[in-house]
């Protein structure tokens, strides 16, 4: 079974969160805790690298639904970077692609955060 891991990297004006593995009803709480810890540290400009996420279910997507409002209320945002086609499809099915910004790389994600 693929392992699940989350790594955070501090950048100049944002935090990059790299996620690997399955983001499902079993692992979503780790993602939720990571985001909540960032909020507790007053970090609201968040880039989530989804390139290593093989699978996402509604529980995983739900983490970002629950968090984007708080990020935006605090002049930040959550930018989703490089989702695989399968992961992006789940966001499309949920109608979330009209709400979230998707970026191809860190530079584009930072630009979106700054716009």
């Amino acid at each position: 079974m693929a392992g699940f891991s989350i790594k955070t990297e501090n950048m100049k004006d944002a935090v990059l969160v790299r996620v690997n593995g399955f983001l499902d009803a079993h692992t979503f709480e780790q993602m939720e805790n990571t985001i909540n810890n960032l909020f507790n540290d007053n970090v609201f400009r968040i880039i989530v690298d989804l390139n290593g996420v093989d699978y996402i279910s509604s529980a995983g997507a739900g983490v970002f639904i629950g968090a984007i409002g708080t990020a935006q209320e605090n002049k930040g945002n959550i930018i989703l970077m490089q989702p695989t086609a399968h992961v992006k499809e789940v966001f499309d099915l949920l109608g979330l692609s009209q709400i979230f910004h998707f970026a191809d790389d860190v530079d584009s994600a930072v630009k979106i955060l700054s716009s």
């Binding site: 983490v63 639904i65 629950g66 099915l93 709400i99």
Partner: peptide, 18 residues
């Protein structure tokens, strides 16, 4: 209603919707 869901930060019901 996904827009309302996001506004309220609600995460429930999404699986059944899918």
């Amino acid at each position: 209603d996904i827009i309302q869901h996001v506004k309220e930060g609600r995460k429930t019901g999404l699986g059944i919707f899918l």
